[in-house]
C-alpha cells in the first residue's frame, strides 16, 4: 500500500495566496473526491502535487510513501507514481499518441527491460476498446485537434496504460456527453484495486454515481472545510455551497454570489 500525504500546504500564484493550508491523506485502494466552488484552488492543488513549476509552495509538505516530493521535478514525480489527468491537456504535434504513451511507459522501466512493442500494442488495443476509441486515435499527433471529449478520453487512456499509484483526475467529466461519461468511468473503475488510488475533482455529483468515492472532501477558499462519505456529495448537489458555508459559519465570498 502507498500513501500520499499533503500537509499544511500553502501555494501562491503571481503573489496571490491560493492554497491556505490544505491537509489530505490518501492510500492506494481508495478513491477520494474533491468538490468545491469555482476558483477555490482545486486545480492549484492538483498541479502542485504533480509539480507544475508555475505554482510556488510557500509552506507545507507533500509526501509520497514518506518521501518529500516537493524538491522533485515533475518527470521524477511521474516516474515515482503520480499522474494528473489535466483539466486542459496540451496539444503536441511532434509525436503520435501511441509513440508518446510507449515512451512514457518505457521512461519508468529500466533500459534493459523496455516493454516489448507487441505487448504494448496488445495492451493499447484493449484499453482503447474499453474507452470506445477508434484505432485511428493512436496514430494521430498527441491531442492535436482532438475535441474536448476526445482529450478527456485520451487522458484516461494514458492513465490505463501508465498505471500510476495515484491519479488525480481534474474535471475529467467536464465536456463529456452522458455516454462518454460512462465510458470514462468504466476506464477508471477498471483501474480500481489495492495498487491504485485516485483523487477526483468534479463539480457534478453525477460522476460519483459511476465512480463511487470512499471519501468526499469539500474545498473552499484554499482549504478543505469538510469531509464525509458519498452522501456529502448528494447533500451539496441539493443544498449548494452557500448552505454548507453558512452551516460551518465560514466567512467566504463565493464567485457567483451577489454582493
Amino acid at each position: 500500500m502507498s500513501t500520499l500525504e499533503v500537509k499544511n500546504l500553502h501555494v501562491t500564484i503571481e503573489g496571490k495566496k491560493i492554497l491556505k493550508g490544505v491537509n489530505l491523506v490518501m492510500h492506494t485502494g481508495e478513491i477520494h473526491a474533491i468538490m468545491g466552488p469555482n476558483g477555490t484552488g482545486k486545480s492549484t492543488l492538483s498541479e502542485t502535487i504533480m509539480g507544475n513549476p508555475a505554482y510556488k509552495v510557500t509552506q507545507g509538505e507533500i509526501f509520497l510513501d514518506g518521501k518529500d516530493i516537493l524538491k522533485m521535478p515533475v518527470d521524477e514525480r511521474a516516474r515515482a507514481g503520480l499522474f494528473l489527468a489535466m483539466q486542459y491537456p496540451a496539444e503536441i504535434p511532434g509525436i503520435t499518441n501511441a509513440e508518446f504513451i510507449r515512451g512514457a511507459i518505457n521512461a519508468r522501466r529500466p533500459q534493459d527491460d523496455q516493454l516489448p512493442i507487441r505487448q504494448f500494442l496488445k495492451d493499447l488495443d484493449q484499453a482503447m476498446e474499453v474507452l470506445d476509441m477508434t484505432e485511428e486515435m493512436a496514430e494521430r499527433h498527441l491531442n492535436e485537434g482532438f475535441s474536448g471529449g476526445e482529450k478527456k478520453r485520451n487522458e484516461i487512456l494514458q492513465l490505463m496504460m501508465i498505471k500510476p499509484k495515484f491519479a488525480i483526475l481534474d474535471e475529467i467529466d467536464s465536456g463529456l456527453d452522458i455516454d462518454a461519461l460512462k465510458v470514462v468511468s468504466r476506464g477508471v473503475n477498471q483501474m480500481r484495486g489495492p495498487e491504485f488510488g485516485s483523487l477526483i475533482i468534479t463539480h457534478y455529483q453525477r460522476l460519483l454515481n459511476y465512480i463511487v468515492p470512499d471519501v468526499v472532501h469539500v474545498m473552499m477558499d484554499g482549504r478543505i472545510v469538510k469531509q464525509g462519505g458519498p452522501e456529502l456529495a448528494k447533500k451539496l448537489e441539493d443544498e449548494g455551497y452557500a448552505g454548507l458555508r453558512d452551516e460551518l459559519g465560514l466567512d467566504i465570498k463565493l464567485v457567483d454570489e451577489d454582493a
Binding site: P53, V74, A78, F83, L84, M86, F100, I162
Partner: peptide, 8 residues
C-alpha cells in the same frame, strides 16, 4: 510540462 508529467 505536459510531456514531463507523464514521466518523460
Amino acid at each position: 510540462y505536459y510531456l514531463m508529467s507523464r514521466g518523460l
